[in-house]
Simulated assay, not measured.
Amino acid sequence: MRKLLSVAGAVGVAAGLLTVATPADAVVGVPGAICTLRTLGISPGKQIVRREYYTNAGKATLSTVGYNPGRMTFVPRALVNEPGAGGAPYVNDHYLANYTNGYLYRVLAVGQTSYNDVQVSAKAVASGWGSIRSLNFSPSGTAGGNYLYGLADNGGFYRYVYGDTTAPHSRATIGSSGWLGVKTIDYDRTVTIPGTSRKADVFLATSSDGRLMEYTIPLDTPSKWTRRDLKTSGWNVFKSLQTEDCYVNGAASGRVLIGVTPAGAAYLYHDRNARDGSAADLVAYGNFATGWTEKFSG
C-alpha cells in the first residue's frame, strides 16, 4: 500500500462561524412550486461552505453555513457529497475530493454548527485521481455501492462503483475521449428508457461553446449515451451549474437551476417541465446573489 499523505486530521482554526440567512422578501421565489437546492463548496480559505436556496409558493429564503473550526488543507480539483450525507445544524457529512497530488480523499465533517464545532478530517482512499476535474454521484449502482462518475482532463468520462468502505472500482468507460468540451455537469435524475425496463442516469451539462445539454447514460451500456441540446448558446458563462427537482403536491414537477459565474454571481432558473427534453419553458430569474466564490461540486 502506498503511503497516505498526512491530510487526515489536518484541521485548522478559523474565525467566527459563517451563518447567514437572507429574509424571504429579499430573495426571488419561484411561484407554484416547492424547491430546495443545496450547494457544497470549498472556499478559497479551505472552509466547507453549504448554501441552501428554498422556495415555496413564490416566497424564498437563502441560507449559508460555513463549517468551523475545521478546515481542509487544500482546495480540491473536484468534490462531491456522498449519497445520504447530512447537513446543518448537526452535521455528519461525507465527501469525496481529489487533489493535484493524485489522491482521492474521503472527507468527514462532524459536529454542531450552533456551537461552532465542526471538525474536518480527510483520508486518502485511492491514487491516480489527479486528472479528474468533475465528480458526480448517482443513487443508481450495484450491491457494492453507488455509481460515481468522473470527468477527466483528457476528455474521458468514466463510471465507478463506490461503497463507503472501499475505493472506487469496476471502472466502466462512457467515452475515452470526446468530453473535453463539457464545462459543467451535474446529476439530474434516473429514468426508465421509453419502451423498455432499462434504467439510465440523466445529467444536465454545459459546454465550452455555450450549450445547455442533457446526457442520458444507460446503466447497462454506458458507452451508448445520447445527448439533447436544450439551449444552443449563452451557458458557458458559468463555472458551476447545479439542479434539483421541484415539487407540487408531493410529486416532482420541474426543476430549479443555479448557475454561478467565476466572479461569484449566482443566477436562478426554473424549468417548469424537466422531463420534456426542451428548455422552451425555462424561466430566468436573474442574478439573485453574489459572493459565491467557492469551488463547487458538479
Rank of each mutant, 00 (worst) to 15 (best):
M1K: 15
R2S: 15
K3N: 11
L4C: 12
S6A: 14
A8Q: 14
A8H: 13
A10N: 11
V20R: 13
I34H: 14
I34T: 13
G45W: 11
Q47G: 07
V49Y: 00
Y53C: 08
A57C: 03
A60Y: 07
L62D: 08
N68F: 14
F74H: 04
F74Q: 06
P76M: 01
R77F: 10
V80S: 09
N81S: 14
N81C: 13
P83R: 03
P83M: 00
G84K: 04
A88M: 12
P89I: 14
H94N: 12
A97M: 10
Y99E: 14
N101E: 03
Y105S: 00
L108H: 10
G111W: 01
Q119E: 10
V120N: 06
A124W: 07
G128C: 04
G130Y: 02
G130C: 07
S131I: 11
S134G: 05
N136A: 04
P139M: 04
P139I: 05
G141P: 06
A143V: 13
L148S: 08
Y149H: 02
Y158E: 04
Y162M: 05
D164A: 15
T165S: 12
T166I: 00
A172V: 01
T173M: 02
I174H: 04
G178P: 04
L180I: 08
K183Y: 00
T184Q: 07
I185P: 07
D188H: 12
T190W: 11
T192S: 07
P194N: 11
G195R: 03
K199P: 06
A200Q: 04
F203K: 02
A205P: 10
T206A: 05
S208Y: 06
G210V: 06
I217M: 00
T221L: 10
T221G: 01
P222W: 07
P222Q: 00
S223Y: 07
S223A: 14
W225S: 09
W225P: 05
D229H: 02
T232M: 08
W235N: 02
N236Y: 04
Y247D: 01
R255H: 05
P262S: 03
A263K: 04
H270N: 08
D271Q: 13
N273V: 12
G277D: 03
G277I: 02
A284Y: 15
A289G: 02
T293M: 05
E294Y: 01
K295T: 15
